[in-house]
Nucleic acid binder design. Sequence first.
DNA 1: CATGAATGAGGTTTCATTCAT
DNA 2: TATGAATGAAACCTCATTCAT
Lengths: 201, 201, 201, 201
Amino acid sequence: MKTGLNKREKNKELNRAAILTAARILFGESGYSDTTVRDIIGRTGLASGTFYNYFRSKEEIFKALRDETARQVRPRLHAERSRATSLSDFVYLTFHSFFETIKVNRDLYEITRRNSGMLRLQQDTPEIIAGLRDDVEDAIRRGLLPRIDLDYFVPAIIGVALEVGDAMIQRIPLDVEAAARFASQLFTGGIPALSVPEGGA
Amino acid sequence: MKTGLNKREKNKELNRAAILTAARILFGESGYSDTTVRDIIGRTGLASGTFYNYFRSKEEIFKALRDETARQVRPRLHAERSRATSLSDFVYLTFHSFFETIKVNRDLYEITRRNSGMLRLQQDTPEIIAGLRDDVEDAIRRGLLPRIDLDYFVPAIIGVALEVGDAMIQRIPLDVEAAARFASQLFTGGIPALSVPEGGA
Amino acid sequence: MKTGLNKREKNKELNRAAILTAARILFGESGYSDTTVRDIIGRTGLASGTFYNYFRSKEEIFKALRDETARQVRPRLHAERSRATSLSDFVYLTFHSFFETIKVNRDLYEITRRNSGMLRLQQDTPEIIAGLRDDVEDAIRRGLLPRIDLDYFVPAIIGVALEVGDAMIQRIPLDVEAAARFASQLFTGGIPALSVPEGGA
Amino acid sequence: MKTGLNKREKNKELNRAAILTAARILFGESGYSDTTVRDIIGRTGLASGTFYNYFRSKEEIFKALRDETARQVRPRLHAERSRATSLSDFVYLTFHSFFETIKVNRDLYEITRRNSGMLRLQQDTPEIIAGLRDDVEDAIRRGLLPRIDLDYFVPAIIGVALEVGDAMIQRIPLDVEAAARFASQLFTGGIPALSVPEGGA
DNA sequence: CATGAATGAGGTTTCATTCAT
DNA sequence: TATGAATGAAACCTCATTCAT
């Protein structure tokens, strides 16, 4: 039955979730290579062999984490962006939803950042960002954006999102709106639009 | 003769260079953790112990590579930027010199990209980028740039430089000017300035 | 059952004991530095990594061996000596219990002998001897021994115990009483007391 | 010619001596296994390959050091002992000359102590002590000593010499006479002869 | 002879993975 | 399924010794 999991099945789910969580934290903190399977399983209190009841290898859990990110994050980013009705709207929502996601899922984000090119697990674009190109193409079709060289434009968005995102996280207080405003002003009007009024910090 | 190196010294230079080159390639291809000392020395045809005649540890050769980058690249980027006489000039030269550097030292660039957050070897800002903030501050003092929030602006430049730089490298033909033009237009006038005339790619 | 160990636990005990025994023999034969972890584990038939399931390092197993000695030997030597009621009694029991211990734990003794000053693992006094000074001080308080310069007297006992002990072990038949008699006569009456009747060996 | 060494030959002698001295110090400080050929040669300022112009191997220099000890020390100890005219004389001179030797050649002594059973280089009796048995047998023949079990007596002397010698070295001020007096009193009259007058240290 | 870089066997230790319980 | 000891390949590094200069 879909609705009810018996005790055994429920425990399986919990264990799997616990292992994933531990891996998420550790990959984020130390990177893929410097995180051992023992580190991961040790954080859960389970025995080391148990790891292999849930994941076939260390590589597999890394991929599972990526997929999780994709499943959770992509639809959300897409939904936000599709509400846009103007260029500045589109840009602001893109950055805002991305920064908001970073703030909420900081550990998943760390993994993507710290292990971008690792092993041979990499994709050209981190999952957390996937889907952006489609949405941009759609925005062009909808007339929100002018015709642009996407091979440079999409990376430009990504670059700003990642680096300004990093800066945002380190800043106190953590202000998603301010960061999103900064990035979207840059993309909407360039440097002149960024000018800080008199005694700005 | 004072000027020339004798055979022994010349050979030492060659070996050291060979080891550095091998490390550069492998760190770039596989990252720091997944590159073994044996991989490195194996590529040179030397014996495994010989590695340690030149570098005290795996970590040390990594640092040596980084320092090499810094010594080669920083002064050059700085020199280019300090020639700027206007906002658009400053931005264009910044991106252009960076992309040019990437093109020439592609392997060194890969290392920095792939190992940014790795191990505990990282610095907050990869060497290849260090110095940018100083130059931007200087440009503001010189009136080339308006007063801006540097904690977001500098990362924004870096993000675009890195991601557009990656895109540029994969593109054939490799066109530094085009990439620099794109990035500086974005920073100078925002998306509207990017608009591609009719039949653009 | 609480009292018995199951198969797993029993096997663990056996393996740990096997590793300790192998180390004991090899350290005794070749000394600490010239005994490799591979030698030790090889003697047990276990895989090389297994060593590190039981001891964190080569140094640790050495210490474990020492502690084992201490736990086994010290209380026993102390108990014997505290039974003494006269000077000659005290001296005889001291040597006798020491020689008896050597005889029984010959391999542990070899380790202590061969590695006394080694590496930086040493303690000033090998465990096998520790406690002697306390007992001597106690004997002086109890009036069994006169007031003596302990900084020379304790080493003198130790020196005779070790060297005569070595000689005893090589002698056939191994006669603990004879060795103890010799040493205690020397300490009780000096050389004159050692005089061998007519046809002595 | 015996009398004059030319410059080349003199330098050879100096180098050989320098290497031996360095080895003596280092073997004494760290033991045979933990001293590297590079450590030794490094202390002399010579190049590592040069070591092998003087000694065929690390083991050989160790043996050379042993032989040096024997050549220097044995005759001297023998000469001192043969002057003895009574039991107490013999015993006192034996210990005194040994302690005096220790004091003067502390580094050679350390080597013998720290590496007694090492490698397979050991002899049953350290070189520094060799010859003792012969002298004792001679003393018995000369009527200085009673007939004694030499297999225990010689080791007893050695044990006291080594251990009291160690204690003496650590004591400040270093008093050879006091140590020799202690040891010879013990051997002459046993513990009763050691009794310290009232407020002795 | 002196030099010091090159050699490569071998040392200690780690860790993903397997498997008997 | 859970356990955790066993496995063994492989990582980093050391060092006695050789050899071209």
